[in-house]
């Protein structure tokens, strides 16, 4: 008989306070790119389930709004992306179709990295003849490690707001991450001193944050018009520039076509380096720390070549 009352009590209270059961559910985070997924794992630990919409060898500009991603948005508590129109071709569809309120713009579950850091290369003129440009500036903000630190704060705050019962855990992980990140950045800063002023040619204008932070100098880009494969006449100009500028290295991301950079290597013998660009873009770049470690190591290797 007593057990019966207990059951009734539990059922009634359970109905009145459904939060107490829900609060133990992990927070679901959909990251648009692997770097934000990696950061979410650093801060969220076991309290979150992280899914990345893209992998390290994918170009986040051009992803299909796959049905599976609609399902992910439908369940997500946080959508964590680069913003600045990087995902404009597919994220709006997912957000509208998934129709999850907490992850919509203005809600705590909506984090666009570019909204929280200084965005570079905001165009003065916006015209499609300039290619697939981003009116809000260059969205690849994660390649400056200082931006990662800023976003770590933002994410921890949002997690604490969405899941207050575990806010202490998020703050502890944030503190631990920030101290390890500061140490790592100090080390990287020293290493970049050797690289300062090194001249590079990039495939696509995806690297300004890395170049700005590490002091590398961009000579030109193989893609004259962003998002449109290089033309022969432009490649001829690049070839002239490459020969006369003392360019040390041609940089390309894992998802970019190899033909233009390989052609230039064939003509000039300037080495081509495929930098990881994001977590998973290189077999050894498995988290945010190794992403920058590997990137600097690869650049140092070409710097050391005669």
């Amino acid at each position: 008989m007593k057990a019966w009352y207990t059951t009734l009590l539990v059922v009634t209270l359970g109905a009145l306070f459904p939060l107490s059961a829900v609060a133990q559910e992990p927070v679901r985070i959909l990251a648009c790119e692997p770097e934000w997924a990696a950061l979410a794992e650093e801060i969220g630990g076991d309290d979150v389930i992280v899914h990345s919409a893209t992998h390290g060898r994918q170009d986040a500009h051009h992803i299909r709004a796959r049905p599976s991603l609609i399902a992910k948005v439908r369940l997500a508590d946080i959508v964590f992306c680069s913003g600045a129109e990087l995902e404009v071709g597919w994220l709006p569809v997912l957000m509208q179709r998934g129709a999850r309120r907490i992850v919509q713009p203005g809600q705590p579950g909506h984090i666009m990295a570019a909204d929280h850091v200084e965005v570079m290369e905001r165009p003065e003129v916006i015209d499609r003849s300039l290619g697939d440009i981003h009116p809000s500036g260059n969205p690849h903000v994660h390649l400056d490690p200082r931006n990662i630190a800023t976003l770590a704060d933002v994410l921890a705050n949002r997690l604490a707001r969405i899941d207050p019962s575990r806010s202490d855990a998020y703050r502890e992980r944030l503190a631990s991450f920030q101290s390890r990140w500061a140490d790592a950045m100090a080390g990287w800063q020293k290493r970049t001193e050797r690289l300062r002023g090194m001249k590079v040619i990039v495939h696509h204008k995806a690297w300004p944050y890395l170049l700005h932070w590490s002091g590398l100098k961009r000579v030109t880009a193989l893609e004259r018009v962003s998002g449109i494969p290089p033309t022969a006449s432009h490649l001829a100009e690049v070839f002239e520039l490459a020969r006369n500028s003392g360019t040390k290295v041609i940089i390309r991301a894992p998802f970019e076509p190899v033909d233009a950079s390989d052609w230039l290597f064939g003509k000039t013998a300037i080495p081509v380096v495929e930098l990881p660009f994001t977590v998973g873009g290189h077999p050894e770049a498995q988290d945010l720390f190794s992403l920058f470690d590997v990137t600097l190591t690869l650049l140092e290797e070409v710097q050391d070549r005669p």
């Binding site: 913003g83 600045a84 129109e85 919509q104 713009p105 203005g106 809600q107 705590p108 909506h110 666009m112 570019a114 909204d115 929280h116 850091v117 905001r122 009116p135 809000s136 800023t150 704060d153 933002v154 705050n157 949002r158 604490a160 707001r161 207050p164 019962s165 806010s167 202490d168």
Partner: peptide
């Protein structure tokens, strides 16, 4: 929870984090 929420709001006003009013995209100039 309430305490944490308070703390988080305080922290937020210190950090660069900002939430935008609904329907407004701040990334557009």
């Amino acid at each position: 929870m309430l305490e944490a929420q308070l703390a988080s709001l305080e922290a937020e006003s210190r950090s660069t984090d900002r939430t935008d009013p609904p329907g407004v995209r701040t990334s557009m100039p």
